[in-house]
Design a protein around this nucleic acid. Sequence first.
RNA 1: GCCGGAGUGGCGGAAUUGGCAGACGCAUCGGACUUAAAAUCCGGCGAUCCGUAAGGGUCAUACCGGUUCGACCCCGGUCUCCGGCACCA
Length: 824
Amino acid sequence: MRETYDFKAIEKKWRERWAEAEAFRVSEDADGEKYYLLEMFPYPSGKIHMGHVRNYAIGDVAARFLKMRGRNVLHPMGWDAFGLPAENAAIKNGIHPNRWTSEHITAMREQLELMGFAYDWGREVATCDPAYYRWTQWIFVQFFKRGLAYKKKNPVNWCPSCETVLANEQVADGLCERCGTPVGKRELEQWYLKITDYAERLLADLEGLTDWPSKVKTMQKNWIGKSVGAEADFPIVGFDRDLRIFTTRPDTLYGVTYMVLAPEHPYVRPLVAGGVYEASVDAFLEKLQYLSDIDRSATTLEKEGLFIGRYAVNPMNGKEVPIYIANYVLMDYGTGAIMAVPAHDTRDFDFATKYGLEIIPVVDPGDGTDLEHMTESFVAEGTMINSGPFDGLGNREAGERIAAHLEQNGLGQKSVNYRLRDWLISRQRYWGTPIPMVFCPVCGWVPEKEENLPVLLPTDVEFTGKGESPLTTSKSFRETVCPACGGPAEREIDTMDTFLDSSWYYLRYTDARNTDEIFAKGRADYWMGVDQYIGGVEHAILHLLYARFFNKFLYDIGHSPVREPFTRLLTQGMVLKDGTKMSKTLGNVVSPEDLVERFGADTVRLFILFASPPEKELEWSDTGVEGSYRFLNRVYRLVAGLREVTRDAPDRYEAVTEDADKELSFAMHAAIKKVGDDIGGRFNFNTAISAIMEFVNALYRYKGAAANPALLKAAERNLILLLSPFTPHLCEELWAETGHTGFVYDEQWPTYDADVLARDTVEIVVQINGKVKEKLRVSGGLGTDDLIAAVNREKRVRTLIAGKEVIRVIGVPNKLVNIVVKGN
RNA sequence: GCCGGAGUGGCGGAAUUGGCAGACGCAUCGGACUUAAAAUCCGGCGAUCCGUAAGGGUCAUACCGGUUCGACCCCGGUCUCCGGCACCA
């Protein structure tokens, strides 16, 4: 064994051996209960960053650990390979996106392999591969066949920089989530997926995800945004149609003092046409047109509105109230119209105050609030007033009864609304999955025949970065024949949002090479669901919601075997430098490659797992990395130094009797227990590593004592096993150097002996009035009474309580005795 | 504004069920080894007070209060920071 830890030679050697042996291939036939461990696959940018390293190191330790615990672990990797950067490179440098992407995949795969991650590369997928996107298209066709994919003309979010439309989910604060450009509106005919049909299930099934962070569940819940209430029809004076509104507060119907329509509401024009209000309404609408989406949606924006000269009739009491249009009512939620109850809604209160509108309280908080002169709206629970037959009821019950009254009298009905909108999936880009639809002048929109899939991306396109989808420039692509009638027809030229590609990849991994079907049912049945999914919290809403939606759909049509795809979810924290996110613009990026070059992959893996628990943010520390490197050297030297003693020692050790031996034996079993519990339970890798460090420290202390070679040999062996999931290259080397054959990865995880951990004597704490005064050694395992008796016998304790009145004594076995005394 | 989460030494962080606060590591200081340095090994290291010393006292987990024999942990309130949503009727 060499004197020093030559990580370069060691890591290269074991990488090659693993690859040769295809050590990480798995199949359904292997022994052991299956475990599907998945990390979110990366976009092939060409370079891995610390976030990737952290994400995949967490997964890799878990995978290796579970494998050693006897599980049949599926741990695949692939590429979320469609997307804008490749296309932008094509526009800028004339490289075809396909070449750009495959080169970047190759580069990144090498970097991942350099880290020593145990993937089954035989299942690698790339979403831009026709063998993959064929099935993305197939899923789209299934959606279409069941009426869940439709094309609709609508004002859509348009990013002028990316030159494409965006889903609502991809607009943050009115800015494009990708590039930060303010998003505008365009009227376009686009494809949508009816995710709203799944809103209720996506919401309800969150309940069952007990091993998901509550934070993520809350975010999804808020995003789906379920509101329970009622719709009601308000007749409009002198108009032939009723105005339908949605409210979550039917209890406040008697407090309605005006109505508000969204400016885009279809009734607005007919209601003002030819009248004196037409000109001012036009002016108001024009002004709104010029407002960008950000300004329009800002909460800080002053509420503005306009009376349109019409009145509506309250269906409950016949009261006539004025109709307004205002910038704070949205067309695409509810019915695009509201009843305004300023007494019990903050927004309505603001508006009413500004325009001098009537305020009628109908819910009394019952705390003496002066309802005649309200200074703010009252939105909490209370007792009904000014509400005819409903006076005196609790407002909650009144709401139920009023909603029932509406329903019975044909004035409205109970209703549920979701904030979730249908998913706009058309993108006017080249580098994505073609939408497999054909427009026939006779048959309308027809899906491509399933046997003709995939609809391949054409190669004869120009990348100008302007205007419509680059697919329009292809001579061959657009013209086709109708799959239904065989007549001349045109292909859809938009491609899919890349989020569709990543919404089902976890299913494809179960049978990644299948050319006949999306995946064999038996294989998905065996592997699904994903037992542990790991990724960044930035995907808490979009990716995870879409993936759940796709899986539910595939479940409904008999393909996915599970209702929820991801049983357990871990969202890892960001890697920070100097308290902020690493970014090129800030120039604080630490390159994994450089660090691997200087310290080796094992050191980087160890540090990134040791510095912080996985779900927390991790502050990067260069000196901390050096510390991890020192530790691995220390381990290497320790094992090298022990060889002399352990080489010829027996494999089993007899019961230990010497004190020093007992200490080491205890340290060993304690480490086995702690490391196993910490990895197996809550993924507390940082404390697991601490425990290994303590074990190493104990071994260094022991080395000087009269050594028991057989015990040392066992300790050496267990140390290597415990450390191996974290620093696999080093441990394979040490495993081989200590005379073992085969991969340490294939070994059994060690077990501990509970009897060793139950020590003969334990140190217990003696407290007086809750303050630690003394520490004593007593026999282990004493019951409460025996413990107290033992403590009472101690001279030192009797001195402590001499002359004091003992009121009470509390004993906690193996821990402490607290003596409560009076006086000092 | 609403909804989450978090506040512990110089720093990253431990404390698994209410039971020794600060494990482990980083930084730093001291010692050994060395001609010397690096590396390595050993040791000190929350604050403060008393004591020459051995040793002992007091305070301390953002802040205020409560429950309890005992609180970083549970309860009520306040502050700060981070994240998500944001005119969704």
